[in-house]
């Protein structure tokens, strides 16, 4: 029973805590033979406020809404009540996280994640001694 908690590494130690409440953007995920395409709705997020992180096998999409608001604006009706989007996905091994291509237009993020090229069959040279 050598279960000293001080010696154990917390599995949550390196994951960021949920500091703020965020919106969960709706996504479409489509897979074909060559890879996966992900579409995410992030309306109101300008290009410079969109953040994509790929770390190990975790893909994080984060965006901050920036709307032009005139002075003295008071909310009457609000359906989008938070200024932050966040959604996290786990990538599997056959996806090539280094070659993710991202496009962002009219508030829609399009991510293309190709699959790793399968190891080509290769001929092993036989050396004659």
């Amino acid at each position: 029973m050598n279960d000293n908690p001080a010696l154990r590494q917390s599995p949550q130690a390196d994951t960021a805590p949920r500091t703020a409440e965020t919106l969960l953007p709706p996504v479409d995920v489509i897979e074909d033979g060559a890879g996966i395409t992900l579409y995410a709705d992030l309306p109101g997020v300008p290009k410079d406020k969109l953040h994509l992180h790929v770390e190990a096998d975790t893909l994080t999409i984060e965006g901050e809404i920036a709307l032009p608001a005139p002075e003295g604006l008071e909310s009457i009706h609000s359906e989008v009540g938070l200024p932050l989007y966040r959604r996290v996905f786990t990538l599997s091994k056959e996806l090539d996280a280094d070659r993710v291509a991202a496009e962002f237009a009219h508030g829609v993020l399009t991510l293309r994640i190709p699959k790793v090229e399968h190891a080509q069959p290769r001929r092993i040279p036989i050396q004659v001694g």
Binding site: I76, H77, E79, V80, G107
Partner: peptide, 14 residues
């Protein structure tokens, strides 16, 4: 989202 100011009504459609 709909907001109001003394001079205008602002509508944001996402």
């Amino acid at each position: 989202n709909v907001g109001s100011t003394p001079r205008s009504v602002e509508i944001y459609a996402f």
